[in-house]
Design a protein around this nucleic acid. Structure first.
Lengths: 345, 345
DNA sequence: TTGAAAGCGATACCAC
DNA sequence: GTGGTATCGCTTTCAA
């Protein structure tokens, strides 16, 4: 069994090439100063032969900055976040940045803890995806930490988090939900219900509000008891839909169209509808939001509001590279995508 | 506008506390040497007040190892990988490790490039998820790089990659597919088709082979022209299913049950079946593999073979922490989950 | 226990 | 252009 070998260092390369470490550094990793062609070639060849790889941490210490973006999200297993993450990774790859990632699993305490670790890494930027609950007591501390990070030269990009002192990727939730309401009324919907995640998450509040506004513009009212508030997950959608159907059975009130504030919730809701013996589409129209993968593959295909998640992830990285003093806001427009889950009725 | 501030360093904390940096280091980040209680408390308090955060890169340079695991996967937007990634992140969190992640997007060149970057980071371990194409010319180079990394003290964990000189999380693909074949025959399937990703990916080869074995054990033969080989993605499943239906139309041969070698492929295949005017379940039974999220929410619910992806991700991290000399193999058993997409016929 | 000082692996300033 | 060397922030011998 091979004994533990050791990583080749720049000093060794320099010695082998008969130049100073300064020159070797310039030849291999480049700098403003130039190196004569022949030396550059020789040093690079020797580095190659020796299997030299720069020690990123050493470079980071010397330069004072790490070629890294740190990404905080709620749950990578959720298609919404994994699509964003894919975009971020693509953008980072284009910009020759590394990505470090952590999931809060929606725990505020964990969120703070992750932020500390991120800050220890001195990344170029921290990208925060996933609306956090602004009600929680950690929120203030969290923002404070981010602010300190920004003041010490870091860049912060927040995805879909309402007004913020940082760069913001601003998904047009309100507008998308409003347009969805219009489309659903046009398809003959009259009696609406909503299954939503906690409204303390800005995303949910905006989507509900936009939907309500859209209905109002068509002369319809969305009452509070037509809205069920549960977990912002697939299971939440399932449970919430049960609750909604239950309410309407008690009330004897009709219900022809349901808006779930995310596709994941809509998927759960669809199963709940079937478990109640009803048919999605034929009996109850159902729409989601985000247009994640598989909206076309469920049966019936799910009406949704498209959010260009992948592209938005790439954009977040580009913003992270910015250097302006003032926070930038990048609006991301959304588009209704009508499918079979909301037939004309 | 606040001027750019600067990060507090250990030296500053030490000076403020009136102790040496050595002592401050021991007090804050711990070491074998102990520090008297009162000094420890004082230093920690001052560090807190000053907002000190250790510089991880500096620690890494000094210690020679970074508290990080690096994860290479094909595509984080794929539920298979995002579930594994979620498990890895959970495991890393438990072990107080950071996670850096990159996606190869199934490009061998990119894969090598990522591996170089990873090695530059000097992580504790590199976890490779996603079966790579062993046919490609980069494969050898890739393994060589990993071997070098391992020889210089790094730990390598490979997920589902056949026999390997590294730690291996060994998903029982062959056995799962075999059991699936049995179950499908028991449900009345007689005329089988397979939609698969490239068989140069070990995973596909194993799943097909297991399926064929299972059928053979029930006295049925799976001929080569009943197998369509396409991209190992949702779209591949869609296209492949079209092809399969097309072939059978030409042949006038019956086809009652289809096995897609991943759930993503199965989802695409289901839509293709519907696009052909057939019904999944009633006309053609369809089964996938992996049991990713949403198998229960598509309609009809999709029969699959469960792979404990999240748990397996956590296990991968635990293996990454190991220190044994010999590579470890961790078998991951799989279970058939029958659902409505494969009714009794 | 504590501190002085020598690394860790690189970069960058300052001479030459 | 090239080399010498201080420096980055931290850990860890080695003495005291």
């Amino acid at each position: 069994m091979a004994a533990q070998q050791h990583q080749v260092t720049l000093t060794e390369v320099a010695r082998a090439a008969g130049v100073s470490t300064a020159t070797a550094s310039r030849a291999i990793n480049g700098s403003s100063r130039r190196v004569s062609e022949d030396i550059a070639v020789r040093v690079k060849r020797i580095a190659e032969e020796l299997g030299y790889l720069p020690n990123l941490s050493a470079q980071t210490v010397a330069k004072g900055a790490s070629p890294t973006v740190a990404v905080l999200l709620s749950d990578i297993a959720d298609p919404y976040f994994s699509a964003i993450a894919a975009g971020i990774m693509a953008g980072a790859s284009e910009a020759a940045l590394m990505v470090t990632m952590a999931a809060s699993e929606r725990s505020p305490a964990r969120e703070l803890q992750i932020l500390r670790t991120f800050r220890s890494q001195r990344p170029q930027a921290i990208i925060v995806a996933g609306s956090r609950d602004e009600e929680n007591t950690h929120a203030q501390e969290f923002t404070g930490q981010l602010r300190t990070y920004a003041e010490t030269g870091g860049r912060v990009v927040v995805i879909s988090q309402g007004p913020s002192p940082f760069d913001l990727v601003d998904i047009q939730n309100h507008d998308g939900a409003r347009k969805l309401a219009h489309a659903l009324v046009d398809r003959g919907g009259r009696h609406f219900g909503v299954v939503s995640g906690r409204v303390t998450l800005q995303t949910n509040a905006d989507r509900i509000d936009g939907f309500r506004t859209g209905l109002a513009e068509r002369g319809l009212t969305l009452t509070d008891d037509a809205i069920v508030e549960t977990e912002f997950t697939r299971d939440g959608g399932y449970v919430g839909m049960h609750e909604l159907l239950h309410r309407h059975k008690d009330l004897g009130a009709p219900l022809d169209t349901v808006f779930a504030t995310s596709d994941m919730m809509a998927f759960g809701a669809a199963t709940a509808i079937r478990d109640h013996g009803h048919s999605v589409g034929a009996d109850i129209s159902l729409a989601g939001f985000d247009n994640v993968g598989l909206t076309e593959d469920v049966n019936p295909a799910m009406t949704s509001v498209n959010v260009p998640l992948h592209e938005l992830g790439r954009s977040a990285v580009r913003m992270a590279l910015g250097s302006g003093r003032e926070p930038v806001r990048l609006p991301i427009s959304t588009q209704v995508v009508l499918r079979a889950s909301t037939p004309q009725r």
